[in-house]
Structure formats: C-alpha cells, structure tokens
Amino acid sequence: MVYLILRLMDRKLFDRYYKLLPKQSWLVKKEFELMKMISSCKTSQQKDLLFNLLEDFQYLNNDILNRYIESIADYIIDESEFDINKIQIVGMAMDDNPDSSQWILQLLKPVLTKKGWNNVKMTTRFDKSIKILNKGTLTQLVLVDEFIGSGQSVSGRIKLLKERASVGFNIKACFIAGMQFGVDKVIDDFDDFRCFIPLKKGISERYEDDEKSLAIANMRELETTLLQKIHDKELVEYHMGYNASEALYSSTGNTPNSVFPYFWWPYDSKRNPRNPILIRSEEGLGL
C-alpha cells in the first residue's frame, strides 16, 4: 500500500509533504495515515485543502502541553486573585465517563503542589462542585479544561450553576485552547475567562469569497466518503466539526469533536475502519 502510494508521488506532492513536516512534526509518526488520507482525495483541490488545513493545525505534544499546565497553575495562583481557602478548581464532567478536564486536573495537581498550593480543593464533577459551593465556604470557582469548542457545554454548565447555586459565588475559567467564537459566546458569564490558544474557524474565518465557498464545497465532498451514520450518530451533526466549529486542534489526548471530522471519523462509507490521522473516542462512535 505504502509502496503504491509512493509510486504515484510526483515532485509537487513530495515537496508539499516535505514542507509540512517541520511545522507539524507530530505527523512524522503518522506517515502512513497521512499518505493514505491524501492519496484518497479525488482531486488536487481536495489535496490542497487538506494540506492547507494541516499547515494551520495546532497540535500540542506532551512537552508543550505540560508548559500550558504550568500556565494554568500560574493563572490560578498569581492572576485569579482567588484565595486558596475559598477556591475550588472544577472540571467539566457531569457523569462517570472520563473526560479531558479530569485529565488536565490530574496533570495540574503536582504542578500546583510544586508551586506551594498543596491543599487546594479540586472537584472533577461540575454538578458535585455546586453542592460543595452551597455549603458556603468554597465559593470561588475556577473552571478548567483543555478545549472549548462552540461553548455549548460551558453554557450548559453555567446555566446549571445559576439554577442550583444557593449562595453567592465567583467563577473564572482557564482553558488551554478553544474556538474564539465559543469563548465570545460564554465570556460574559464569567468574572474572567482565559484561553491560551484562541483559534479561528479553519475555513470560514481564514478564506474569503470564492475561495471560501470552494473550500467548503471540497470539504463537503470529502465528507461524503465517510460513513454517514454510526448507530444513532449522524455525520451531518459533525459537519465541519460539531456545531460547525471548524477546529484545527488536537493534543496527545482525545481529539475534540469540534475538529473537522475528516481528520478523525472512524469509518469510510463502505463501513471499513479508516485509520485516520487523529483519534477520537466517543461513546457510540463504534460499529
């Protein structure tokens, strides 16, 4: 398979791969997946689109991720102006399913301890944190997560908090990355909202006019090669990323559903596994 793909490579295509690698060195370990994805494009326009999107991609390897964990700790300790005796560092989870905010909180624990905050209250489940808040002592909340997409989940949490809180509170947020339009949607609900890597929509906010409609048409065309329905999950819900977020972001963790599904959707239209360049684990997204 690789041999066949290689045989079909011309100079232009070789150079595009070669120029992409210094910017996106995470793809070095995904050579086969990448070449398979690019070679499955029907037109050179589709290939160009995928290369352009990959060039704009923000991928956090573990080294860089750990630096952002440090930044979250610095934000909480030095900038939030919250008191170690009143603060709750809160995740986004609402059930027992592990999620990215719990992963970030776990990574944050030793970093906070190293910086001298070793008795700070952390709560992985958002609903639980409201119960703790209502006891009246820990009333300064910092919501922490890896990524904010359209802001839908964050809005939902804030709504819940407002409904259930029986005492006064302050809430700030600290996210590693996220869509700017998602941040803008929820920012007024927070006393402060920090997002270290704000992202523009990968196509709509990068291209204009004809180029934009062409890119969207090409992406739509590419998405037709994916399995349209996996049990009750419809691809149309994820068109251009969940809530059309058009995200070009991932870390070594679970890829957010806001990312263009062409990069992570698990099956092609013939129900074969695709071996995509990114992996998303989501309940119900398996045949």
């Binding site: 290689l6 490579m9 100079r11 070789f14 791969y17 070669y18 690698l21 070095v28 050579e31 070449m35």
Partner: peptide
C-alpha cells in the same frame, strides 16, 4: 533537493526528513 532521494531510492518525505 529532498525529492532527489525519492527519485534515486524511493525514500518517502518522512524518511528524508527524519
């Protein structure tokens, strides 16, 4: 050019880059 190594030995872009 990196491509020359593909022409001579069929080394992939990643192989040359590495």
């Amino acid at each position: 050019f990196p491509y020359t190594f593909f022409q001579r030995y069929e080394y992939s872009p990643v192989t040359v880059f590495n």
